[in-house]
Amino acid sequence: MIRIDCPFCGLRDHSEFSYGGDASINYPPLDAPAEQWHDAVFLRENIRGRQLETWQHTSGCRMWLNVERDTVSHEIFAVWPAHRGYGRVLHAEKENTE
């Protein structure tokens, strides 16, 4: 069982989350050429080792997270909010309490 350290809720079981997808993908503008959309939607690396993923804390705070995880050992190296505004808010609050 993987445990993920949600920046809002703390360390929780993976069963509270839903796996999203590849966090390294930059989706192009909605009117970008088809080749760019094709690459963003259909091309994926199959990584043995560390990769960047998105997860959503569906049974918790509903926050979308970027997670760096090793696909072999399941070790998690970093978790942070996908939305930089959420990240700023939580970071500021953490600083205030410390």
Binding site: C9, S15, E16, T58, S59, G60
Partner: peptide, 10 residues
């Protein structure tokens, strides 16, 4: 306060 899953329900 914490949100979590109880018997598969949020």
């Amino acid at each position: 306060v914490a949100s979590s899953a109880l018997h598969h329900v949020g």
